[in-house]
Design a protein around this nucleic acid. Structure first.
Lengths: 339, 339
DNA sequence: ACCACTCGTGACATCGATTACCTACCCAGC
DNA sequence: GCTGGGTAGGTAATCGATGTCACGAGTGGT
């Protein structure tokens, strides 16, 4: 009740000093006599004073908030990343503001612009745009995740999309598959592009030709992946295996296989997901732990905020193949006529 | 480059007027001559001026931000809710700050306190504490989700936990089950409490006794649910069906059944989840769409912000039973000796 | 011709804290 | 005794926008 509006001047008055000195105590300025400091601290405790973050931000020109800009909060991958960032931020006493781009470059700019204007201490961004030079003038720390910065020199926490995809596809090839479909995101996404390159590289390494018609690189939603998987499998020359280039696609393709009872089609996905181990067959994946990515990104950001001046780095989050069954199925030879 | 620090006074100067008048134009004050307004508007456009949200908040005493306080962003249910809230907020030009309580009442207070101090326009809270009187003094709009407010008169968007659970369990009973386990959250959660009550009511309605030893109400994490399911099924008098009282528990129990190859045990879960339809058997659930809850909550909040003075309401989000297979399995009579 | 009023505007205080700059004092050293 | 230097603390400007209030110019009624 009574706690309405306790200002710094109130504290100062109670401590019999001026606002400036109270402010010094608050900010840990050493030039304050111990006795005075004690009086101020007692006043703060008694009045339950807490500084107004808005006023402080306005004056200091920096807010104790970190912004997180991602594709969608509903995407389990980004949800986990965000959750981890929030944990680290909370531990450091900062708050987190999230906003989702829905993969729109315009919206990314809009959101980041707003955050910069709000003077956030830093931002962690999964970019949707293709050129980030516009962030150059920003005075806050920036860390990119999932996709790297273009035309901008900042830290990034990424995974080795190329090698991850290559490993996944090589795994399928090693199990005898020759006709492997690619189901992934639109290629204007850096990650998608790299993963498709990995898919091709795996083929090249095994001297296998790539059948371009098996490449479905236009699945931005779960439903798209489901639909494309259905189409691919309906073909007379259907693939015997599918590589899904991201979690969303895996979560679209797995149900499609299930719905068609195609337990004979091998599947390896990029990105682990809940229930992947309990599907029939369990889904083999290349796991890039969102928790680790979130943590690395947040730590990197705080490192910067603490004033590290080191040159920016691209940090690589670990990848590992989790063998569960779906990726080890042998190629089936269904109704075939030729060959 | 040049856009650094365009202040209202700069705009005013460019338009040959005073800051106050420029401010009037910005805030749509009608008392401005059309000519002046035009000049100011042109200056704004030319200088690409955008008001400083911090300064504005400080002065107006309210921030264009809404706070979302939930258990965990990593929880798919809350992630979806949050995502929906963020969509609505973005559409209204507000930003969203999220923070997770990890189910700690202390942390809930801490977080909400911080948000209120930040003068957020409103908060949407999935409470962890058991008494919310402390929010009474807050000057911002408040909407509760998932769990209702206690000792506080604000809007809430809830689901009918009692009837949902009752329906789910009645469904299992209708399919012949007599020994139905309950796997759920700690009972100090309102929702858990109500759902267990629904479980009991369904038994009572069918004149079935409740075997208290089949009630595992201490699973706050996915792993807990997995473990408890394993224990329950290892008993000589194992249940023939399981009701999981929330998504987390469903996601723990389903893999447990799968790992034990117990495709004979029926399962109905409270809350839908990704892949539920693709598990073997597909999981029958009582669905309470997080999207709908998030949207209703956000809309309600904006309704309040728009100045609605109506008395607070408890809005009920719809529930529906999604029949998929796991809930319709007949009771199996495994290695039984008695009866 | 004068009062009463509205209309468009600007000067100045204000939101709550921080910072630049300056004072007062104490003690050492010449 | 006076200067120099360091320390504790105060005063006022500042961050950027908005609220208060007052002021000059038209307008219309009498």
């Amino acid at each position: 009740m009574s706690r309405r509006k306790v200002r710094l001047t109130d504290v100062a008055a109670a401590a019999g000093t001026s606002a400036k000195t109270a402010s010094r105590v608050l900010n840990g300025d050493p030039r304050v006599a111990v006795a005075t400091r004690a009086r101020v601290e007692r006043a703060i405790a008694e009045l339950q004073y807490r500084p107004d973050p808005l006023a402080r931000s306005l004056r200091k020109g920096t807010d104790e908030t970190i912004g997180v800009v991602i594709d969608s909060i509903a995407d389990p991958f980004f949800a986990s990343v965000t959750s981890e960032i929030e944990k680290v931020a909370f531990a450091n006493g900062l708050t987190v503001t999230v906003a989702s781009t829905g993969r729109s470059a315009d919206r990314e700019r809009l959101l980041l612009d707003g955050m910069v204007r709000r003077k956030v201490a830093g931002v962690i961004v999964a970019p949707a745009s293709l050129n980030h030079a516009y962030l150059g003038g920003a005075s806050c720390a920036v860390v990119f995740i999932d996709r790297g910065p273009v035309a901008l020199d900042v830290d990034a926490v990424l995974v080795d999309d190329f090698h991850g995809a290559r490993t996944a596809v090589a795994h399928l090839i090693a199990h005898g598959h020759r006709r492997i479909a690619y189901v992934g995101d639109l290629l204007n996404m850096q990650t998608a592009d790299q993963r498709l390159a990995g898919y091709r590289a795996a083929h090249a390494a095994a001297d296998l030709p790539v059948d371009e018609s098996l490449i479905a690189a236009d699945c931005s939603e779960i439903a798209d992946a489901t639909e494309r998987a259905g189409q691919l499998l309906a073909r007379p020359d259907a693939p015997t295996a599918i590589f899904t280039a991201n979690t969303r696609c895996s979560m679209g393709v797995a149900p499609a296989l299930h719905a068609l009872s195609r337990t004979d089609v091998a599947l390896v996905g990029f990105g682990d997901f809940l229930m992947a181990a309990s599907l029939q067959p369990a889904v083999t994946v290349i796991d890039h732990s969102p928790e680790v990515i979130g943590q690395l990104a947040a730590e990197r950001l705080f490192h910067r905020l603490a004033g590290s001046g080191e040159p920016s780095r691209r940090i690589e989050a670990p990848l590992r193949l989790i063998v569960r069954g779906s990726g080890e199925l042998p190629p089936s030879t269904p109704v075939r006529r030729d060959n």
